[in-house]
Design a protein around this nucleic acid. Structure first.
Length: 262
DNA sequence: GTGATTGTTAGTAA
DNA sequence: ATTACTAACAATCA
């Protein structure tokens, strides 16, 4: 579930539940093969610390303090951070947990094991080392338009290029293109400047709305794609008579409406 | 059984 | 050097 809006919702969850509490232990869950988690050394460093701030860049979440160290979490395809209080029980597929003083716990549930948790010194250095582009909600219009206008890849793939724009994945790229009326396979380099501007505007309004509703799709407008993202259903856009369909674009399944996206 | 999945990355090719 | 594309990763579900 994790693209920019989902990760921002998760960051808010951490902000609300995990700050200013002493870490009693950081532990690995069961069945941790094939997943990138902190070793004994890093786990030991977290003990006794308190987290005082959260950050997010693209699909990366950070939890830490001025003096470090920080924890960074990537949710992969199926990861989720779940705070709970004893005697509530821990979720299935917990790969990593933080035990705070008292009853509060934070579980990293990751059934498909494509996510990771790392202990790092500094979020900015980590973002630079990963060569992530600017966050999609902070990128300058000119930077965005220059990149997209020069891209010969499918526009859907370009929007999902984390090294150029951080935070957009398969679902939200579909939504942005649905709003913009563009076929997901169009090339950015074929678009005029005013069209590129509308993509930028749609990206901001779409992702911002996703953040406002904390990625709860039932609270998105009824005429958006994501709450209706099924093939053969009627296009939800007002006045559009088309039917939604899907096809592979850039190796991912793109949902779109051929009637108003071209 | 087949094929799909809201992500990243190593390898390959142009 | 840069950009674009594919397969692979792992587990689960339709």
């Amino acid at each position: 579930m994790p693209e920019l809006p989902e990760n921002e919702a998760q960051r808010l969850t951490l902000e609300r539940t995990c700050l200013n509490r002493t870490v009693e232990a950081a532990e690995l869950g069961d069945n941790i093969t094939h997943i990138d988690l902190p070793g004994d050394n890093e786990l030991g460093r977290l003990k006794g610390r308190q987290f005082t701030e959260t950050r997010r860049h693209g699909k990366n979440i950070f939890l830490g303090s001025k003096t470090g160290p920080w924890i960074t979490v990537h949710l992969g395809m199926s990861g989720w951070l779940i705070p709970y209080d004893l005697p509530e029980s821990e979720p299935d597929h917990t790969k990593f947990r933080i035990v705070f003083e008292g009853d509060r716990r934070l579980a990293f549930r990751c059934p498909r094991k494509l996510g990771h948790v790392k202990v790092i010194e500094d979020p900015d250095a980590y973002i630079a080392a990963k060569k992530l582009g600017p966050d999609a909600l902070s990128i300058e219009r000119n930077t965005f338009v220059d990149f997209l206008g020069g891209s010969k890849a499918a526009i859907k793939s370009a929007l999902m290029d984390q090294n150029r724009i951080a935070g957009i994945g398969n679902l939200w790229s579909d939504e942005i293109l649905f709003q913009t009326g563009l076929d997901p396979a169009r090339k950015g380099s074929d678009l005029k400047a005013d069209r590129l501007d509308t993509v930028f505007d749609a990206m901001l309004t779409t992702l911002s709305k996703g953040v406002v509703v904390e990625a709860d799709y039932s609270r998105l407008p009824d005429d958006w794609l994501i709450p209706n993202r099924k093939s053969k259903s009627d296009c939800p856009r007002a006045g559009c008579e088309g039917k939604l369909t899907h096809r592979k674009v850039g190796g991912r399944t793109a949902y779109y409406c051929p009637a108003h996206q071209s």
